[in-house]
């Protein structure tokens, strides 16, 4: 009994700290979501109150739906995010496997070179990237964004995944080699499933900045049919007048897809962790 009491108290304290942090972190999101359901007057009069029957108003959502191709923007964002994510995970994992599995001359240098991108922001190269895209005729295509985001995400992916790949049992890979599996089969069927939690972590870290990015869509793909949701929402923010209802509604809607993706990945993450613990 004596042993359990302090443990319990500690656990309550830990939960209190975590709950407080969660509340602080979620508060801005909460404010955005509740205000997106209110009339313009109510947003400014009582910004912290939830929508009440008196001031409940869907005008923001109506504006968003009416305004141009909001659905198209969504689709663009989803396409860019998913495609970039796919390539980052695929190429990142393959490079990480090569770096951690094979001994070759310059292995260390190659790893450092690939990880260097973590420290150098890709935006420094914006002008060169733009020139490149103009020269290759990729301006105003989703392809240009996918290429840039893949490049942006790879360094961290290679760095994190190669650390994890080193933990995969050599015996397992060697057993596969003796049984006649190709290196590709070993990579895809034996190694990848075992580093799934790390892949999920990388996916989350890669996805959020891509989804939220305003910079590259504005520079590389500003035309109507390839606009992403973040760029699309900017139409409501004017120099003189800002349609707050519409901005808040657009932002609230933009949270949903990332949330869904996040839930998918985090389930993978938790499953990976518990699978390891039970084994």
């Amino acid at each position: 009994m004596r042993a359990t009491h302090p443990a319990k108290r500690q656990s309550i304290a830990a939960h209190a700290v975590l709950l407080t942090y969660t509340l602080i972190a979620l508060f801005p999101v909460f404010v955005i979501v509740i205000n997106s359901f209110k009339s313009r007057r109510a947003i400014f009069a009582e910004p912290l109150m939830p929508p009440l029957p008196g001031n409940f108003d869907l005008v923001g959502y109506a504006t968003v739906m009416k305004q141009g191709d909001f659905f198209q923007y969504f689709l663009n964002s989803m396409t860019v995010t998913c495609a970039s994510l796919f390539f980052v995970l695929l190429f990142g994992a393959m490079a990480a496997f090569a770096l951690s599995e094979y001994r070759f001359r310059g292995n260390m240098l190659m790893g450092l070179y690939l990880a260097l991108g973590i420290m150098i922001p890709i935006r420094l190269g914006t002008v060169a990237i733009l020139e490149l895209m103009v020269a290759t005729g990729l301006v105003n295509t989703l392809t240009s964004l996918v290429l840039v985001y893949t490049a942006q995400g790879l360094p961290l992916a290679v760095f994190i995944l190669s650390e994890f790949m080193k933990t995969v049992s050599d015996d397992l890979k060697n057993a596969g080699r003796i049984d006649g599996l190709s290196e590709y089969r070993i990579f895809f069927t034996l190694v990848l499933p075992l580093v799934r939690p790390a892949m999920a972590t990388v996916a989350v870290f890669t996805m959020i900045p891509i989804w939220n990015d305003l910079w590259f869509p504005l520079i590389l793909a500003p035309s109507e049919e390839v606009k992403t949701i973040t760029l699309g929402s900017q139409v409501f923010i004017g120099q003189f007048v800002t349609n707050w209802n519409a901005v808040l509604s657009a932002l609230s809607l933009a949270i949903i897809p990332v949330l869904v993706l996040y839930l998918i990945f985090s389930r993978q993450l938790i499953r990976g962790i518990t699978a390891g613990a039970v084994k």
Partner: peptide
Amino acid sequence: PAKREIAMVFQTYALYPHLTVRQNMGL
């Protein structure tokens, strides 16, 4: 390795986690 007509048993068993015992043995 696969062409050497050898078989190896490892300290850590090294069974394929996604395959059944039957599939492990038959791979």
